[in-house]
Design a protein around this nucleic acid. Structure first.
Lengths: 178, 178
DNA sequence: CCTGTGAATTGATGTATGGTAAGAAAGAAA
DNA sequence: TTTCTTTCTTACCATACATCAATTCACAGG
């Protein structure tokens, strides 16, 4: 999830309204698009062979979400992307994000963005390797307090790698502790 | 883990010999260095509050390993880095990796490197979210067949987020299946 | 206001993986 | 070689989390 304000940068792009539940990308599709979220919230997730969903990323206002590997390497998408709230988005094509005649300044911004993303991935990997369900949940609400208010619990559970039932019990425990 | 051949690029740097077990970075240190591995293998890992180790990265020949966030943001390191084989490395400082007067071509190479890393992190996150111990192990040996030969099983276990005992049982199962 | 649908909770039970401890095997050292 | 150390395996038991099923709760739509 990136922090730079991009709204200004994409202001000339046509806005697209999407309804809650609308699917923007399906696993198996070929895609050249990324989605910048101006209002609302999207999510990217996989569905594994048992039909279970695992959320890879939430994308609230000012975030960009896409199946980057599919776009960059022209592969089939592995992610589904849909809207979890009524949203206003801008559809970007790969060229909009990184042009071949990019200058050093733009490249450095891009590098910083990638490094920020890498940092957040690193933290998530360490968390998934080493933390209990309770620790994962507490880290999530500390890291994304806004999201924690907005998204259904079952999606938070999916993002942190536990079941909704377990998350419900973890929350009960936490309340009991205070 | 990057794929570009960097040996040529760092050939003018002085080589440093490190013995198996030698620690190059400790959590809590401030650091400005990254390590390019010419021969041998390093590893980066965290030690959590219970004293358990979790391996974040292996770095065999031609890889660069560092606590990137500590270097870039001048924070205390969270990782330990040590040698798991007798190794020959080059010690790089942050300026060696990314100079302020970088040209567009160098920047693009850097971007590609970051994207490759992002792709591998993405895969690891999905694996940690959704795969069983057995699936994680099989994915590891498929993805890093060389490493699987070289590093002790208990380190593979640590990397994929299970205990050495569980990995031993998983391997037994896999043998029985054939 | 009702009613339907998905979300959240709860209880009972199952299971994959962890923890502990002991011994076997494999490497390093001497 | 022999010894010492570390890794790996195995058995037994413990536990965190998952699964299944039944309510309850919270709204969105009519």
């Amino acid at each position: 999830m990136q922090e730079i304000n991009l709204k200004e940068h994409f202001k000339s792009f046509p806005a697209k309204q999407v309804k809650k539940g609308e699917i923007l990308l399906r696993a198996g599709d070929f895609t050249n698009s990324a989605f910048f979220v101006e209002e609302g919230c999207l999510r990217a997730y996989i569905i594994n062979s048992n039909g279970k969903e695992y959320i890879y990323q939430f994308a609230p206002e000012n975030w960009i979400v896409s199946d980057e590997e599919a776009v960059l390497e022209k592969k089939e998408a592995i992610f589904y992307i849909d809207a979890i709230e009524d949203s206003v988005i801008k559809v970007l094509n790969s060229g909009d994000l990184r042009s071949p005649d990019m200058n050093v300044d733009a490249a450095n911004k891009h590098i910083s963005g990638l490094q920020r993303k890498l940092n957040s991935f690193r933290k998530r990997i360490i968390l998934l390797l080493s933390a209990t369900a309770e620790e994962r949940y507490e880290t999530f609400i500390k890291t994304y307090p806004n999201l924690a208010q907005r998204v259904p619990l079952k999606m938070i559970a999916s993002y942190i790698g536990i079941t909704p039932e377990s998350l419900s019990r973890v929350r009960k425990e936490l309340v009991a502790k205070k």
